[in-house]
């Protein structure tokens, strides 16, 4: 009873299957944490950008001015992201269509809305990237860990079959090392599930705000397009 069972010895002493399972789980945990931190940064930035942009948008600045400001960044090689890409898609389509005099106001508006909807979908995809991976890690890694544990316990009981005297000490280390696999599975799964739920809710919230913005912006465009038409007619 004097020999100490360190964590490292337990892992090194495990059978190859259990070690593979542990390796897999470590990889899953590392990858999912990487994605969690990355998503966290991305979502925070997107949130900030949305607030900034809305403030600018409703400050009464000329929309053409706003579009031109964005042009500069695009020429520098930074494609617009977030709410700005939706605004730019809508505004570009609107100005392009309204230059053609033979298209009526409704069609112009419809075109602009469609462009913005596409941009919104693309934005949603960008925000939701990697979330399915987190969901898979969250739902499968406990099972993978459990598999490792069951395998390890099977192994240690098989060893017990050959022993004439069954002592607890003969199986205890095997079970202990096998249980590490379950612990690792849970360690990988819990943050992944929490992060998935949190991020999914945040992405939903962002997309809702994008949709709201699209509606508001089309309201402005509609007003403008009818004003342009009536001026042309008059």
């Amino acid at each position: 009873m004097n020999e100490e069972l360190g964590l490292i010895e337990l892992i090194l002493g495990a059978s190859i299957t259990v070690q593979l399972v542990m390796l897999l789980l470590v990889l899953a945990s590392v990858t999912s944490w990487y994605m969690i931190v990355q998503r966290m940064i991305l979502l925070r930035r997107t949130d900030d950008a949305l607030l900034d942009f809305e403030e600018q948008f409703w400050s009464g600045v000329d929309l053409a001015e706003l579009y031109r400001e964005g042009n500069q960044a695009v020429n520098d090689g930074q494609p617009p992201t977030g709410i700005e890409s939706i605004f730019r898609a809508g505004f570009k389509e609107f100005s392009r269509l309204s230059q053609q005099s033979d298209i009526d106001a409704d069609a112009v508006l419809e075109g602009a809305r469609r462009a913005m909807r596409v941009a919104t979908l693309r934005e949603g995809d960008r925000l939701e990237m990697h979330l399915p991976f987190l969901a898979s890690v969250g739902s499968t890694s406990p099972y993978i860990g459990l598999f490792g544990t069951v395998w390890g316990i099977m192994h240690s009981f098989r060893g017990l079959a050959n022993a004439t005297q069954a002592t607890l000490a003969a199986v205890a280390p095997g079970i202990s090392e096998a249980l590490i696999a379950t612990a690792m599975g849970l360690f990988a799964a819990i943050p992944a599930v929490l992060a998935y739920n949190r991020f999914a809710a945040r992405v939903d919230g962002l997309i809702n705000r994008y949709d709201t913005f699209v509606d508001e912006f089309s309201g402005i465009l509609q007003r403008q397009s009818y004003a342009v038409r009536s001026r042309n007619r008059g």
Binding site: G6, L7, V30, W33, Y34, I36, Q38, I41, F187
Partner: peptide
């Protein structure tokens, strides 16, 4: 670098701290 380097560093750090904690504070007989 911000989207790749920082998460990578944070991830590695987190796991290293966890492993260090577990190995150093592992209950001994």
């Amino acid at each position: 670098t911000f989207y790749i380097g920082f998460p990578l560093a944070a991830t590695v750090l987190l796991h290293a701290v966890l492993i260090a904690f577990l190995t150093l504070r592992w209950p001994e007989t």
